[in-house]
Simulated assay, not measured.
Amino acid sequence: MAINPQSIKPPANLVPRNYTPANGRKYPVQIGDSWASLAATVGRSPWDLIRYNYPTLPLDLQLPAKEVNWYLEHYVGCTMLTPDGRNYRFSPPGEIWLPNPAAALTPDQVAQRLVLSILREPVVRRMNFGVGFLMISATYYEDIAKAIEAGKIVVKVNPALRNLAMYYGASSPARIELSPTISDMGLIVHECTHAIFDMRKLTTNVEQSEGFGYLSQALYGQLKYGPSARYTVPFHWPPFSWISWQTIFDESTRLAAVLKTSFWVSEADAARLFGAFKNTRGGGYDTRAGKVETNDGL
Score class of each variant (00 low, 15 high):
Gly151Pro: 02
Ile3Gln: 10
Val206Ser: 10
Ala289Pro: 06
Asn87Val: 11
Ser216Leu: 11
Lys260Asp: 15
Tyr141Val: 01
Gly290Met: 00
Tyr167Cys: 05
Asp143Ile: 05
Phe133Ala: 15
Asp33Gln: 04
Leu134Val: 15
Leu273Asp: 01
Asn13Gln: 13
Asn13Cys: 11
Ala165Leu: 04
Ala276Thr: 09
Leu178Asp: 00
Glu149Val: 00
Pro180Val: 02
Arg175Ser: 07
Arg125Pro: 11
Lys224Val: 08
Leu161Ala: 04
Leu57Thr: 03
Leu164Thr: 12
Asp250Cys: 10
Asp184Ala: 05
His194Gly: 02
Thr247Phe: 09
Leu57Ser: 06
Ser34Cys: 07
Thr193Ser: 04
Ser117Phe: 09
Gly283Phe: 08
Ser241Cys: 07
Pro239His: 13
Ala271His: 11
Thr20Ser: 14
Leu178Gln: 02
Met1Thr: 10
Gly284Arg: 05
Ala218Glu: 03
Arg86Val: 06
Ser209Thr: 12
Ser241Asp: 10
Ile153Arg: 00
Ser137Cys: 14
Leu63Val: 15
Thr203Gly: 09
Pro93Arg: 14
Thr287Phe: 11
Glu67Arg: 13
Thr287Asn: 11
Asp198Lys: 09
Phe263Ala: 14
Phe212Tyr: 01
Pro159Glu: 04
Ala65Arg: 11
Ala2Cys: 15
Tyr54Met: 08
Ala145Leu: 06
Asp250Ile: 12
Met166Ile: 11
Ala22Cys: 06
Asp33Ser: 03
Glu251Pro: 05
Lys156Tyr: 01
Leu49Ser: 03
Ser117Trp: 08
Gln62Ala: 15
Pro55Tyr: 07
Arg272Phe: 12
Asn205Asp: 12
Gln217Thr: 06
Thr204His: 07
Tyr231Pro: 10
Arg162Asn: 15
Ala170Lys: 14
Arg230Leu: 13
Glu293Arg: 04
Ala160Gln: 12
Lys26Pro: 12
Pro122Met: 02
Ala102Lys: 08
Val154Thr: 08
Ala256Val: 04
Tyr27Thr: 02
Ala160Asn: 12
Tyr140Asn: 13
Asp250Ser: 14
Ser172Gly: 07
Leu116Val: 01
Leu105Lys: 05
Ala65Asp: 12
Ala147Phe: 00
Asp143Pro: 06
Asn295Met: 05
Val258Gly: 09
Ile196Arg: 07
Asp108Gly: 01
Glu293His: 03
Gly297Lys: 08
Arg281Ala: 13
Pro180Cys: 04
Leu81Lys: 02
Ala195Phe: 02
Arg200Val: 12
Ala65Gly: 08
Pro10His: 04
Leu63Arg: 15
Ala104Cys: 06
Met185Ala: 02
Leu259Glu: 02
Arg254Glu: 08
Ile3Leu: 14
Tyr19Ile: 07
Asn13Arg: 15
Leu119Asp: 06
Ala218Met: 01
Pro58Val: 08
Ile153Gly: 00
Gly77Lys: 12
Arg51Met: 07
Asp33Val: 01
Leu298Arg: 03
Ile96His: 10
Ile31Ala: 14
Thr20Leu: 15
Glu191Asp: 07
Val258Pro: 10
Ala138Phe: 06
Tyr71Ile: 05
Gly290Cys: 00
Arg44Lys: 15
Thr287Met: 13
Ala276Ile: 09
Arg120Met: 12
